[in-house]
């Protein structure tokens, strides 16, 4: 039973990402949407824990939310995959259930 964890909060504002990483099983995936997008940035304070998480989790980011926030995909941590809303829907079917860390 694998979980799609959805994070919509900036790692600099709330503990959602930390809590998710503490409670996510190794085979589960993480999707960053809305202000959760800010966790993708290279050379940022949260980058190290995101890079470590990539060892155990597929991490996805919602491209329209990335673009809305003016983040250059070139500045994204290597290994994070971009999806659009169609890809978001597909992820919710690829995994058994979703957990939104509101």
């Amino acid at each position: 039973m694998s979980v799609l964890h959805i994070i919509n909060k900036s790692p600099y504002d709330r503990s959602s990402l930390d809590t998710c990483l503490r409670l996510a099983q190794p085979d589960s995936a993480i999707l960053l949407i809305e202000d959760g997008i800010y966790a993708v940035q290279k050379n940022a304070a949260a980058a190290q824990k995101v890079e470590q998480a990539l060892a155990n989790h597929q991490i996805y980011a919602l491209q329209p939310d990335l673009e809305a926030r003016g983040i250059n995909p070139d500045n994204m941590i290597d290994g994070i995959a971009l999806v659009d809303y169609d890809g978001f829907v597909k992820l919710t079917t690829d995994y058994d259930k979703s957990q939104s860390w509101l």
Binding site: S2, V3, L23, Q25, S28, D96, K97, S98, Q99, S100
Partner: peptide, 8 residues
């Protein structure tokens, strides 16, 4: 426990 659920 989270992993075992059907609906969260």
């Amino acid at each position: 426990i989270i992993d075992q659920q059907d609906v969260i």
